[in-house]
């Protein structure tokens, strides 16, 4: 692909990425959702988080134990109420050790 084409492609990708992110703010600006829908939308935050974790974490490495182990380490650190920065760095550290040992 030529450079011109690539930048055109980037521009089109920008449009189809930006529009779904922006549209709800414009579309639903004046809309007051009924309580049920409102609660669904709040639960949706945690639902999407769950969907971002599973099944992706199992597929992160060819070794499925890697993802499971990483998940357990992250969960444990987070459950101890450690700041999320240290959950991330701690898990990376533990998994570096795991990769090194296994």
């Amino acid at each position: 692909m030529t450079v011109d084409n690539l930048f055109l492609l980037f521009a089109a990708m920008t449009a189809v990425t930006y529009i779904p992110r922006m549209l709800p703010f414009v579309l639903f600006d004046e809309v007051e959702f009924p309580p049920f829908i409102s609660n669904v939308l709040k639960n949706l935050r945690y639902a999407i988080l769950g969907g971002l974790i599973l099944p992706g974490i199992f597929l992160v490495s060819e070794d499925p134990v890697f993802g499971v182990a990483g998940g357990i380490v992250a969960f444990t650190l987070a459950y101890l109420d450690i700041d999320v920065v240290f959950v991330v760095t701690g898990t990376i550290g533990a998994m570096a050790l795991y990769t090194f040992v296994v």
Partner: peptide, 14 residues
Amino acid sequence: SLSIALYALFIGLL
């Protein structure tokens, strides 16, 4: 080992 980072973030937030 770095590939776990974003999942650790999601778990750490959830």
